[in-house]
Design a protein around this nucleic acid. Structure first.
Lengths: 208, 208
DNA sequence: TAGATTGTTAATCGATTAACAATC
DNA sequence: TAGATTGTTAATCGATTAACAATC
């Protein structure tokens, strides 16, 4: 399923489709037209049809879209067809919070271990997950087929972790540190820059 | 400082400028041209000049931009000229993690209390911050001039909290629950949809 | 002054919206 | 069949990039 140059704007809307379709599925809604979906999700009907047609004709003229099918298809596009082994680096408050989120695991992102450099934290067990010493990072990653790392260190530690990741087979980083990581081309990074987000909120609060 | 219709794309870049300028300031860099800034921040020089000129002519021909001045100006645009009283609703793992983030406080976002409905959590003190019962929510918000609420509840509790917020003077919500909140027009919401973010990462990992 | 770099207008590119023929 | 709604092309809108005169 090699799509050619779907724009980032489209990709970022996919999880929202996925979320709304799941909700409809839970509410036993069997089919939905782009017009109806538009009303609840807030995108235009035209945009919805354009978005979906980047990946194939999932609908049916005169009928609309089958909710379950569309939900499954979008899941496939997003890579939710198998499990991924993940680890967390940085077992502070945020790392522990993420470890406790069960919804990630339910989607297939299976937490295998946490890592830290702080001797006070190393050795703890959080939700059945051990906090290991960074000394064993490379060994663990290689032996356990880890594919995704959540970086929950502070700003200063993040690039070091990214450098160590880049020498392994890990190809995806979810970065929560307030810094833009330098990584090889074949490693994808998704940032959660909380401060950037908060400052955007602050801007709009001021403007109101 | 009522700016007219600055696009969202521009606004979302501002915190990144702010972050990079702070770093330069810390490294005693006194001035920067759009061309040099382009190299480190990754936007084109042209875009940088366009962005900044939405808010005024902060530069000087032949010289570039004074790092300290520009940092201050962007801070002003983002509303970092005074403190804001904030509270957290939902004192679970994520709420506690946010309470422990000192960088928000340093920027002026002062945490005044946390709220929860779980009797096991209410009464705790986290980093000098008390966890209060939701019964006292409205009273506290009104008496303490709270302006921003971080919603760290689960999905199902979030809209209820948003409804209660909407009846107070709070005009800004930082929402971490995986749901799109319905709020009055004059309330601004900034979402951190972690799952959406993780699924985007998953998409690109698959595409690689 | 000469060189550098901004501020700003114009050109281009890309994303969203509108329209409608195809078809279930 | 008639009505509804998609898939897709064309039109519009907005954001980014290029170019360059203004000016420090």
């Amino acid at each position: 399923m090699k799509e050619k140059n779907i724009s980032l704007a489209v990709i970022r809307r996919l999880p929202k489709y996925h979320r709304y379709l799941k909700e409809m599925l839970d509410n036993d809604i069997k089919r939905i037209s782009s017009k109806e979906l538009s009303k609840v999700i807030g995108f235009t009907a035209s945009q919805i049809r354009q978005d979906l047609n980047n990946f194939g004709g999932f609908g049916q003229q005169g009928y609309g879209y089958n909710v379950e099918d569309l939900y499954e298809e979008i899941g496939k596009i997003l890579g939710l067809t198998r499990d991924y082994n993940v680890i967390i680096v940085g077992a502070g408050n945020l790392g522990q919070a993420l470890a406790n989120y069960s919804s990630f695991g339910r989607l297939g992102f299976k937490l295998k271990a946490m890592f830290d450099i702080n001797p006070k934290i190393v050795g703890l067990t959080i939700k059945d997950i051990q906090v290991l010493d960074m000394d064993t990072f490379e060994t663990f990653v290689n032996e356990n087929n880890v594919e995704i790392v959540y970086i929950c260190t502070n700003r200063d530690g993040a690039q070091d972790v990214a450098d160590r990741i880049s020498k392994t087979n890990v190809k995806a980083i979810w970065n929560f540190a307030p810094v833009d990581l330098k990584v090889p081309e074949d490693v994808v990074v998704e940032n959660v820059h909380l401060i950037d987000n908060l400052l955007t909120l602050s801007y709009f609060l001021k403007e109101n």
